[in-house]
Write a protein that binds this DNA or RNA. Sequence first.
DNA 1: CTGAAAGCGCTTACAG
DNA 2: CTGAAAGCGCTTACAG
Lengths: 365, 365
Amino acid sequence: MAEPKKAKGTLTIYDVATRAGVSIASVSRVLNGLGSSPETRERVLLAVRELSFVPDGAARALSNGLKEVVGVVFRRGDEVPFADEDESLLFIDVINRGIEVAAQRRGFDVLMSSVGVHEENLGSRIAAIAGKADGMILHDRILSAAGIARLADSVPIVTLAGTPTASSLNVRCDNASGIRALVRHLVDDHGYRSLAYLSGHSDSPDNKARARAFETEAAAAGADVRTGPAWQGNYSAEGAAQDIMSQLDAGRALPRAIVCANDQTALGAMHALARRGVKVPGEVAVTGFDDVPVARHLHPPLTTVHQPIREMGATAFEVLWSRISAEGGEPDVVLPVRLMIRESCGCAHRPTATTISALPAGEEA
Amino acid sequence: MAEPKKAKGTLTIYDVATRAGVSIASVSRVLNGLGSSPETRERVLLAVRELSFVPDGAARALSNGLKEVVGVVFRRGDEVPFADEDESLLFIDVINRGIEVAAQRRGFDVLMSSVGVHEENLGSRIAAIAGKADGMILHDRILSAAGIARLADSVPIVTLAGTPTASSLNVRCDNASGIRALVRHLVDDHGYRSLAYLSGHSDSPDNKARARAFETEAAAAGADVRTGPAWQGNYSAEGAAQDIMSQLDAGRALPRAIVCANDQTALGAMHALARRGVKVPGEVAVTGFDDVPVARHLHPPLTTVHQPIREMGATAFEVLWSRISAEGGEPDVVLPVRLMIRESCGCAHRPTATTISALPAGEEA
DNA sequence: CTGAAAGCGCTTACAG
DNA sequence: CTGAAAGCGCTTACAG
């Protein structure tokens, strides 16, 4: 996999020491801002500049026991790309952004690695990354609980939207509250009587929590709930579109509102509906979950549940860092969400934030 | 900056060797797929599994002289976020995606690091990253030519949309051809007689090439060219919006078409125009450059020049890899671009790819 | 095929 | 404050 035995004229701390006329220990001290006489300091710094010396991170890490690197693993979409979701900045990307910024503040860098859905040797791929990092942040559905437990033996782990285990930490959002607010808005404010939940991956903890909250709340509100395999999606726009298409093809009547497991699912549903001439939200209302950046650009703008996505990433890093540096770290952090009412639920377009329309007028839950 | 002296019960290759009853050399060989008897192999693999041992990347790197890590540095937008560009997947993100996938194929991981526009100690930040990687890919406007030359002393460097130097490699797109096709479409197909180029950062090589091509081509086409400080933007939507606003406030007449330095600039210009009631493309046509994913979702959909963004990233990695592994590497790769005609130039909406409209009907250049 | 040993480039007690 | 020396966890000639 690799051949180069050693880079070219790799400069080392010995070269700097020789040039500055001091010991390597002194060079190291200056480089790390530890005690040293002003004169030594000057000479070392000068030598460093003249040689444009950059200390080797691997050697530092080996000596220190700290790489100052956090590994982030997420799934690459190997599925057929859907026009709008292809390359869009989705959920994962925004989280990664949050991780990066938080890491920066602690002097850490982020080793990003995507894994294919059907990757052959997932285990070794991830182990290789773990070996290069002080801790790992795993996005949803990367490793099984057993896989996480095993990996956690060798490196601290934080999962995102997963389930905390005995050895790993977790950061997630308040799915139940979000779905609850959404269902209430649909039923109470709009008066919709029939609802369906277009599901995400059935093995996703987030999806399970959302599905459960949906069923509970919709039933409590006295709405007619559509369920069953016909409403099994997979978090992708493609999957949602196919789902809606086949239901329409089968001549099934759609519910008045479709609560989608995430924004991508809503996006796919809206596309399919539009293609079949079904008006959103006129005939069928559609809602999402996540509030990815593109949500407000859809037609109609998507009513969804806002997750503090960036903060999730930043929080994941902070929790991991606590664990890395002190065996601490909150085991299960839950972040609040917020209902974002736009137009796909049936609310009217509000020209500016201050003008209030005459229609159903949903406000924040 | 860091305290942990050493992780908890860090397992080492010695633990594995002891458990397997072999020498550490044998463990290493098995782990690296080198010659070893089936029996040794079995015992080592078993021990590795039982202990869930993960070899330390820093130690491997130090011993090998290869970290299998590529550092990528890009600028974080510290500027005021503009609605549509905030967190959107822009140029940089798509490139990074391309880098990541290409790196994967060679067993490399990507160390991503964003730097603030006004970061204090940029030099040391970047040096720290360089120390953790085998090579670096630098996005536009990260380091001066001198800074690049200095860094190149210690690590191979590939710049993106920069200028090749004696010690660094570069990957860019064919700006001139793109602008040429765009200007011809605007002048020849639409008959616009007055054009302006809303510039990007004046110190960006890409911008310089585009500006030059614009002036040459527009003049050759006999169009009236608007220039000057009034058309100096900075690649951001915010900057472009302010620029247009102030021109409008000053009562200046706008040209018939505005060729923007990049898509974000076009996005800002369109927003400003819309806010002031100027119709696009009815009164003023606007075009972009890049073809970021969001371009087709704008209103009207943006006519722009498509750059093979992902490929740029992948190419940057490949070129860097050649240099890392064999001192090779094409010093200045130029990738082709393609004119994407949508509606912001004045062309009519084309319902499907096969239906051709009756209007100006621009086709690929 | 296998093991003993050296070495990769740093950091950090330990003396001085 | 400074230097000599040990050690971080691997890989890889070198012998056997």
